[in-house]
Design a protein around this nucleic acid. Structure first.
Lengths: 154, 154
DNA sequence: TAAAAGTCTTAAACTAGTTTATTTTTTTTC
DNA sequence: GAAAAAAAATAAACTAGTTTAAGACTTTTA
């Protein structure tokens, strides 16, 4: 998916790995999430508002996804109102975990953020490039390289 | 409200200003939001899970709030299921704007974050101390002082 | 399989922001 | 309205992370 397009589907990942990212004014990429098996992904803002997305989504390896269109998404609530409750709780939980995640990252150094990510998602670290990892942690690839060799030395 | 307590109410602010903050390991405060008239506040994570909150909430001036208890919140959905939809959409919108906000802040310098905040919430800037502003922007009070005098000079 | 393109490493010079310390200004309290 | 306490300003020394540049290693392509 390219920034500028309207997000037509929300995707559920059955196999593979995708990166969701934006480019800032300098063209520097910022990865907001790596989505692997059993994750949902897509730009919900664009999906809901039907405005162009600011995100790119690229598979970092061969992947298989299931997509739900906006029409079917709306139909779901219309046909089966019980899903309102399901999604109300799902979004509330997403909000809580998102707030927790961003708040937790605050006040940690890049090295600490990397160590936490590595401990929490060991399987993801080995599937992505160091450059993408740097774009996720929020530092330059050069500094990422330095951190990794330091952490490995310990 | 003190960290360690379980959040009993979600509050709607009719008058005043509150700061919502955490303390990190060093005891440095990080303000996650200033809540003024017409905002909702409270630690939703603690309110929902009934686990102790990590947040402090303090009024920065005399304030008036309306609170809804967890019991009444649950009752709302039970008695009037239409509120499920209302809250599903409310939480979805909160999620979208929260993601947008955090993503936007990325790659800006402290000075740029301050200028953006000042432009977006000019009325809040004048109601809070420089120290609290620093804790919100994510820098030391010393550097905040430097930035403000620089921006004023321009 | 050679060339091209991309990724990783290393290092030196630099910048945004912190730390520590001191002084000045403003606000609170009795 | 003086004393005490808190907030703000200034400045020098420091640190985490960036920039630029160049070489080594790895993957892709023709």
């Amino acid at each position: 998916m390219q920034a500028g397009e309207i997000t037509k589907y929300e995707y559920y990942i059955t196999k593979g790995c995708l990166k969701v990212y934006t480019l800032d004014e300098d063209g520097t990429p910022h990865i907001s999430m790596f989505a692997v098996e059993d994750y949902w992904t897509g730009d919900m803002a664009s999906f809901m508002t039907r405005e162009p997305s600011r995100y790119f989504i690229k598979a970092t390896e061969d992947s298989e996804l299931l997509g739900i269109s906006r029409t079917n998404y709306d139909l779901l609530f219309q046909e089966i109102p019980k899903f309102e409750r399901f999604y109300r709780i799902l979004y509330q939980k997403s909000l809580i975990s998102y707030i927790r995640r961003t708040n937790h990252g605050i006040s940690l150094t890049a090295e600490e953020r990397f160590v936490v990510f590595k401990r929490k998602y060991p399987s993801i670290v080995n599937r992505i490039t160091q450059k993408d990892l740097a774009a996720y942690i929020g530092i330059t690839p050069e500094f990422m390289s330095k951190i990794i060799s330091k952490v490995n030395r310990m």
